[in-house]
Design a protein around this nucleic acid. Sequence first.
DNA 1: TGTCTTAGTTAGAAGGATTCTTATGTGCAA
DNA 2: TTGCACATAAGAATCCTTCTAACTAAGACA
Lengths: 144, 144
Amino acid sequence: MLEALASRGLKRTPQRLALIRELADDPSHPTAMELYERLRASMPTMSFATVYNTLSALCEQGLCTARALEPGPVRFDPNVEPHDHAVCDACGRVIDISQAGSSPSRVAVTGFAVRSVERIYRGRCVGCAAPAEHAARAEHTTGD
Amino acid sequence: MLEALASRGLKRTPQRLALIRELADDPSHPTAMELYERLRASMPTMSFATVYNTLSALCEQGLCTARALEPGPVRFDPNVEPHDHAVCDACGRVIDISQAGSSPSRVAVTGFAVRSVERIYRGRCVGCAAPAEHAARAEHTTGD
DNA sequence: TGTCTTAGTTAGAAGGATTCTTATGTGCAA
DNA sequence: TTGCACATAAGAATCCTTCTAACTAAGACA
């Protein structure tokens, strides 16, 4: 990700390097505010606008993606490969799911020129499923 | 939808009836602002907060759902059956897609208790695909 | 290494979306 | 019809995101 910066004509500033390091290490799909809070620990002078500027620049260059999986602030995802997401109803956690395995290669969307397909699984993550397991079991059947 | 109001203990006020009529007739997944603008034509005194209050009440009662398919304002969907969506990259239009037909009844999400699965198709709708058809043809392969 | 140019950063304001507050109004049951 | 609880209106507050302008620093080049 770092070497991609230079090859795209983006300057390697300390702020960008810190943000990229923070984002690349993080599979939790943080919001801009979460990234800002964490970065401020090591860079107290960093501006919130810089976080947005940098994230927009990265997204524009295809180095990360902005995702709105549920109402609320946008989440940023360093994984730019096509993949699915599992969203926990209870804690809001977002988990990446590889798209390998299930592949409806043609979809029945009349007249719609499909570029990509993404699945969103909703339910409960490991941590939240355990306490509510008996309650969830009743409606555990995957929906379709 | 109207009769569902009473059975759930919600009062049938003119504002709610108007909003429900507007929403139920509309497959375009309008935003709260769009609904407000349309309703104001017939109910000039209607407050924007009422639109939000009513939509929240309806969502809470399971009579509609709030969807964040892309960054920006939340869109409201009168279709509460499990279904997929096609989002146009060009005009932002959101189209409902029936889930009948493709059904990965079990998904390989380790440790995640799946309640529902939703697919989001991205690409170009009929109106937008035509003008850009030759350009789109190159990357028309559906992704997975 | 020093200077220049351009892009990036900062701080804060602005704007859009959503929620909250409070006084007032209204549907509905008795 | 009356009374009560819920709904509405209006606007403020809050949250998220983008924009602006002045300053700063990265990278290119001599």
